[in-house]
């Protein structure tokens, strides 16, 4: 599974420009899903036919990552940029970015070293050009972080673990699943980082009876971290709530009972900020019981997001267990 993760996290895919990630996933799932299609907003929908008697279930993991959009090329060829999704300037300076055409850039900052926290007005990207004509990219082009995948043994580090790790978990679960009574729609969504836009329209189309997002969540186990009862390596997390959703109590119970029955360790997640595709699936049409299987992740929305490989594998096992049997709650 590490190879799949590596290829996914290293792919270029800022919000709205998820084509490369979609190609990788389509390649992996071709022949294994009963049907694969791409909708008007670029969501990849992999349908796995059920053996009968089950529910229509949507599993969503988002393909897009945060990025930078060029808003201006100055006379010396430096690029001014704006954020695509939640990018924090302190994570940028000295880092590198990559554009769709492969062009690389270094992120600089005005008055570097004397500046406090850099602001967007002070950030620029240096693509090695000396004039606008020389620049390999222009206004409207979008970059993602440039950072290779690193396998630290137990822990894996990369850009875009948010949410390629969710894509990897969902895809792997689809590959490992045997017969399921449920009509399963694995949706690899677009534009989550700018407001769960892909999930909004794909959930309308799929019209699920139960919905699960697979996404990253924050942790509280680094030095002086804000207290949060989620740690790396303690198992996948079952979301209780975040800023955008209260998990359906039945879905939460179903997830807990399934983990316990399968002997999979889990953590309960209460996230004070942020949201996932689950919140828009929950509110599609007349409403859908929804939950979220979360992968604890350190340094979220930086170029080096870290997950625990054991958590990842157990998340796959839990997702397979959830989708294999009848879905019930009191």
């Amino acid at each position: 599974m590490k190879e799949l993760i590596k290829s996914l996290v290293e792919a270029y895919g800022p919000s709205g420009h998820e084509d490369a990630v979609r190609s990788i996933l389509a390649e992996v799932l071709r022949g294994r899903a009963s049907e694969l299609r791409t909708d008007a907003l670029g969501n990849l929908i992999a349908y796995k036919k059920g053996s009968g008697g089950g529910k229509r279930v949507m599993i969503a993991a988002h393909m897009d990552e945060i990025g930078l959009a060029v808003t201006h090329v100055d006379k010396k060829g430096f690029l001014r940029v704006a954020s695509v999704g939640g990018v924090f300037p302190p994570t940028l300076v000295g880092g590198r970015v990559r554009f769709a055409n492969g062009a690389l850039g270094v992120i600089g900052c005005e008055k570097w070293l004397t500046a406090n926290t850099p602001t967007w007005d002070e950030i620029f990207v240096d693509v090695g050009a000396t004039c606008p004509e020389d620049a390999p990219v222009g206004v409207g082009d979008i970059a993602c972080f440039e950072r290779s995948f690193a396998d630290l043994g137990r822990r894996l580090v990369a850009k875009a673990m948010d949410d390629r790790i969710g894509c990897a978990v969902a895809a792997q679960a689809l590959l490992e699943l045997g017969d399921s009574p449920h009509e399963l729609y694995f949706v690899f969504t677009t534009q989550e980082e700018v407001g769960s836009r892909g999930a909004t329209v794909s959930a309308f189309g799929v019209e699920p009876e139960v919905a699960l997002a697979v996404d990253v969540t924050l942790i509280g186990d680094t030095p002086e971290a804000k207290p949060m009862a989620v740690s790396l390596g303690a198992g996948p997390a079952i979301k209780v709530m975040d800023a955008g959703m209260l998990t359906h109590p039945g879905v939460k119970q179903w997830m807990i009972a399934t983990a316990q029955a399968a002997g999979i360790p889990y953590q309960l997640e209460v996230l004070e900020r942020g949201g996932t595709d689950a919140e828009v699936m929950q509110r599609t049409r007349g409403g859908v019981p929804a939950g979220c299987l979360s992968i604890p992740t350190r340094y979220v929305h930086t170029p080096s997001e870290m997950v625990d490989y054991d958590d990842v594998q157990k998340a796959v096992a839990l997702l397979v267990a959830l989708l294999s049997k009848e879905i019930t709650w009191p």
Partner: peptide, 9 residues
């Protein structure tokens, strides 16, 4: 508009 129903380019 683009978020309508199943999505509109």
């Amino acid at each position: 508009i683009h978020l309508t129903r199943e999505g509109v380019p």
